[in-house]
Design a protein around this nucleic acid. Structure first.
Length: 579
RNA sequence: GCCCCUGUAGCUCAGCUGGAUAGAGCGGCUGCCUUCUAAGCAGCGGGCCGCAGGUUCGAGUCCUGCCGGGGGCGCCA
């Protein structure tokens, strides 16, 4: 059996079709007292038929079987239809959720190959708050896609190639390989980069060496490649530490850096040329795509090969499309990249479409996100104008969580408190990022996210912990209450509300993945947690009036814990057992 | 100048692709721990949905024009 709203829609659809073929019943959740859903389609249908909305609504309501699914059906004079689900229906739907290891989420009808490009830090450059968004959102999307049954290929498009490596390698030579490598391995990437930049800017001799070094790198000089690998290796080792701290699933195997595409660029450009897309303009090889203009109103080129013969990032990004849809055979490619790159990516997608690499426009998706702002709503920078190191922000979050844990959970032993502080601190940071619409700019405010009140990660973690503590108290295992068919009592309003909320997991998941919007999953989980805590206050479980009620409520708790646990897992947030 | 994103309570945000009296959290005020974790719950107050037109039975949501914020616009990635 499906979720209640699907059952209702499939029942109402034929009734609407009989009146106006193809009409949408427009079933929506209702916020009206005593009702669960409302049907809004009668007004539009009435307009088409030239009849009164209330009349049409009354017609629709006669649909076969509606009476047995709903305990209350109300038609208003304006033509709204209000529905209250029959308790039996909720119980039956919840029974299906309980009996399903996937908690009602059906696997996707077709398993797709999805390439997800996210995180993409730069070698020898610090990760900052902006990397947090792409990394956390990308990780969450991957988890959701895997859960939906798709084949996910994670690609960490690390910036490991380009002209700046001449400068970086020469700086490595200057400071000595050992100490330079050490500096990078302990995570002082910014320090290394700034020194290199300063030395480069100050010395024409260094600039000349760097230029020669770039040529050596590109021509595959063995010693230069060896030095380059040191930079890359030490940086990747550092990124692994950050990913580990952050609890994201990226590994070394997922690194597909810019250097990986370097050998393909000649071929990519040759193909564009053979398709007649390439135009020479001021010595640069360009593709002009309709609809894009410059400041002056002249056609805007996508420069794939610069006038000095070097490749720009457009070439590399085109190569990713060529590779992902060609060699990898991707069905969909996601680019989890900041909003400022929207135009650049749109142009690359257009070119890939024209070149025939991208089969259709909707297969390449820019999962864009807003900038990270400080609490003052300005770009998130220190007073001195420097970006914050991501690790420092994470450490600060864990530190604050640690302080809260030691004052509130003093009874736990030291190791568990440390794990808890990490779960809460990191979870708080990730949740605050995931829970707002990714399109908007995002205010990074540690005070708010660590306050643990309202729509926060710790609130969800705490709600689940409260479920589990009931089982611990009773010496029971919540696992014994899920995956088995049950019949739950929904006589109390709080029981009924919780049961209904639990049946909504699958549709929340579906809408989140459909729009690549983790915040929709967050909103559902928060609502579920709120409904649960109300239930928790109103309905004693272990001291329930009778054995049947107790078992029923234990099932509701077990399912809540399971859904919250699964939801947090999808978000990439740890679920502690105790707090 | 053109293009993209954005504007909802004092603050941070939802608003399910056009539905009824726009919802949460924080902060403020009032209650609730001898009963499964009070990192909680119940309640009160708080709004010209940036502004002005338009589309229609109906607009926070769609269209146009302004205003304010952010970003992008030929060889940086």
């Amino acid at each position: 059996m499906a979720a209640p709203e699907q059952i209702l829609t499939s029942l109402l659809k034929p009734a609407f079709d009989r009146l106006v073929p193809g009409a949408d019943p427009m079933l929506r959740p209702s916020s009206r007292e005593g009702f669960d859903f409302q049907v809004n389609g009668a007004m539009a249908a009435a307009k088409k038929l030239g009849r009164s909305p209330a009349d049409v609504a009354a017609d629709v309501v006669r649909a076969e079987g509606l009476g047995s699914l709903c305990s209350r059906v109300e038609v208003t004079p304006q033509g709204f239809v209000n529905l209250r689900l029959a308790d039996d229906l909720i119980v039956a739907c919840l029974g299906d959720v309980a009996a399903d290891a996937r908690l009602g989420v059906a696997p996707a009808s077709a398993s797709l190959k999805v390439v997800v490009d996210y995180s993409a830090p730069n070698v020898a450059k610090e990760m900052h708050a902006g990397h947090l968004r792409t990394t956390v959102i990308g990780d969450c999307l991957c988890r959701m896609l895997v859960f939906a049954g798709h084949h996910v290929i994670r690609e960490n498009h690390v910036g490991d190639w380009g002209t700046q490596f001449g400068m970086l390698i020469e700086h490595l030579v200057d400071v000595g390989e050992t100490s330079g490598a050490h500096e990078l391995s302990v995570g002082d990437l910014d320090g290394f980069y700034r020194q290199a930049r300063a030395a480069f800017d100050a010395s024409p001799e260094m600039q000349e060496r760097s230029r020669r070094r770039v040529v050596a790198l590109q021509s595959g000089d063995p010693d230069t490649l060896r030095l380059w690998r040191i930079l890359v290796e030490e940086s990747l080792r550092y990124f692994d530490e950050v990913y580990d701290k952050l609890g994201v699933e990226l590994t070394r195997d997922d690194v597909v850096g810019e250097s990986f595409y370097n050998p393909m660029l000649d071929e990519v450009v040759a193909q564009l040329d053979s398709k007649g897309l390439l135009v020479d303009s001021d010595g640069a090889k360009c593709v002009f795509v309709e609809g894009w203009t410059t400041r002056e109103g002249t056609p805007l080129p996508l420069i794939v090969r610069k006038s000095d013969g070097g490749y720009g990032y457009a070439a590399t990004d085109l190569a990713t499309l060529w590779d992902r849809f060609g060699r990898l055979g991707a069905d969909i490619a996601l680019y989890v990249v900041g909003a400022p790159q929207a135009q650049h990516l749109a142009m690359c997608f257009d070119v890939a479409l024209k070149a025939g690499w991208l089969p259709s426009p909707e297969r390449a998706v820019h999962v864009s996100f807003g900038s990270v702002l400080g609490p003052d709503r300005k770009m998130f920078k220190t007073r001195a104008g420097k970006t914050f190191k991501l690790v420092d922000l994470l450490d600060e979050a864990v530190e604050r969580a640690r302080a809260a844990v030691s004052s509130r959970s003093a009874e736990l032993d030291v190791d568990e408190r440390e794990d808890l502080a990490r779960a809460i601190g990191i979870g708080a940071v990730k949740y605050s990022d995931l829970s707002t619409d990714r399109a908007r700019d995002y205010v990074f405010d540690l005070d708010r996210m660590i306050s643990f009140d309202g729509n926060t990660g710790p609130y969800l973690q705490y709600a689940r912990v409260r479920c589990l503590s009931i089982f611990r108290r009773a010496g029971l295992d919540p696992a014994d209450f899920v995956g088995v068919p049950v019949e739950v009592g929904v006589g109390e309003p709080a029981e009924r509300a919780l049961a209904l909320a639990l049946t909504g997991f699958s549709s929340a998941f579906a809408s989140a993945i459909e729009t690549w919007s983790p915040h929709k999953l967050c909103a559902y989980l928060y609502d579920l947690a709120v409904v649960f805590t109300s239930f928790f206050e109103a309905c004693p479980v272990l001291k329930a009036p009778d054995e049947t009620t107790m078992r029923s409520r234990l099932t509701l708790c077990a399912l809540t814990a399971a859904v919250l646990g699964q939801g947090l897992e999808l978000l990439g947030i740890d679920s502690p057992e105790r707090m």
